[in-house]
């Protein structure tokens, strides 16, 4: 679609930037580890203090990898939604997928006070959370797909997604009214989002699901480009609309659903990253945009996480707050500067 135009230099530059952010993210935290030691422990070399090595391998490296999967996955799902719904403000949240996950978790945490015994023990474990939020996103995803097979108009699907969000919010507030304070706090903490709770085996599952979603997104590249013309033109170009829509929604569901399940609801990355990418790459071609969004999403998420770590301090700020604090002004800035957001 974009003949004779090479973005190789920009790609090399942001790849290097990603590497720098990755190292910087791992080296900073409550204990600052020098860059050289960080590097050598990553490649298996000797480190000044043995504790640094275990901090990096056991804690910081999984967190950095999680940040990369979360940033790239949310960015890609945002890009897919913006193209599919022909709406620059679309993102995984708008579809209601994240709301579905929140509802699942809310039902689990806030409802678990009514259950006792061994079920309650499982329910409040981390795996219970992952299961509940995956289930929630999948349920909403299936509902969205059922609706989209009956409703031709994508705007209607968008509005239905928003309505799901409202219903979720309402149920959550009813539940939290009756739930004990302890459970409520747990839900609130989940809502903060967290990148640091994953073990290596969690990451294995997480990355497998995310890679499956990414591959589906890659398969959809041509359909996505055709959809830039609108659905009627796309159909006239021989695009199988239902199949493409299905493919794109599945890809988004896998990405956004697994991310919300493992890292909590993370706002604004999905909407802001594709727009920032379009500022850097002056193209609408998804062959360029998808890899670019993967790189930039990872970089932004690593930066957000580095900020949340507050170098040298014990505390960790909620990641969801950081992404909102960075993401929301970016969206406002784009709107003010360009007057209208284009996709």
């Amino acid at each position: 679609m974009t003949p004779n135009k090479s973005y190789r230099l920009v790609f090399i530059a942001i790849s290097i930037l990603l590497l720098v952010c990755f190292i910087a993210n791992i080296s900073s935290g409550s204990v600052l580890i020098p860059w050289l030691d960080t590097l050598s422990s990553l490649v298996g070399g000797s480190v000044e203090k043995e504790s640094w090595k275990s901090i990096i391998i056991e804690y910081r490296l999984p967190k950095a990898i999680t940040a990369i999967i979360v940033g790239s996955g949310l960015g890609v799902s945002g890009l897919l939604m913006q193209t599919l719904f022909r709406n620059p403000l679309a993102g995984p949240f708008v579809l209601g997928i994240s709301s579905g996950a929140s509802l699942g978790v809310a039902l689990l945490i806030l409802g678990s006070s009514f259950v006792t015994g061994s079920t309650a023990v499982f329910l409040v474990s981390n795996w219970g959370l992952v299961a509940a939020s995956s289930l929630g996103s999948i349920v909403v995803l299936i509902l969205v797909m059922i609706v989209s097979s009956h409703v031709r108009d994508t705007m209607a699907i968008l509005i239905i997604g928003l309505m799901f969000g409202s219903i979720t919010a309402a149920i959550v507030s009813v539940l939290s009214y009756f739930a004990p304070a302890e459970q409520l706090q747990r839900y609130v903490f989940w809502g903060f989002g967290s990148l640091g709770n994953l073990t290596w085996s969690d990451i294995l599952i997480f990355s497998a699901i995310a890679i499956a979603g990414m591959l589906l997104a890659l398969i959809a590249i041509k359909s996505l480009n055709t959809l830039l013309l609108g659905e009627n033109y796309a159909r006239s170009l021989g695009l199988h609309l239902k199949k493409s829509r299905f493919l794109i929604i599945i890809a988004t569901g896998l990405l956004a659903g697994s991310i919300t399940a493992f890292a909590g609801p993370i706002a604004f990355i999905g909407i802001a990253v594709p727009h920032l990418t379009r500022q850097l790459f002056h193209t609408s071609d998804h062959k360029i945009l998808i890899p670019a969004v993967i790189l930039l999403g990872s970089i932004i998420m690593l930066i957000c996480d580095t900020i949340a770590q507050l170098p040298g301090v014990e505390y960790t700020l909620p990641i969801n707050a950081i992404t909102s604090l960075i993401g929301a002004p970016v969206v406002i800035w784009l709107l003010v500067r360009k007057r209208k957001m284009l996709f």
Binding site: T2, L228, T283, S284, L342
Partner: peptide, 11 residues
């Protein structure tokens, strides 16, 4: 209207 007005003429 076409969906994305951000497309270049070439694209």
């Amino acid at each position: 209207q076409i969906a994305s007005k951000n497309l270049t003429v070439q694209e």
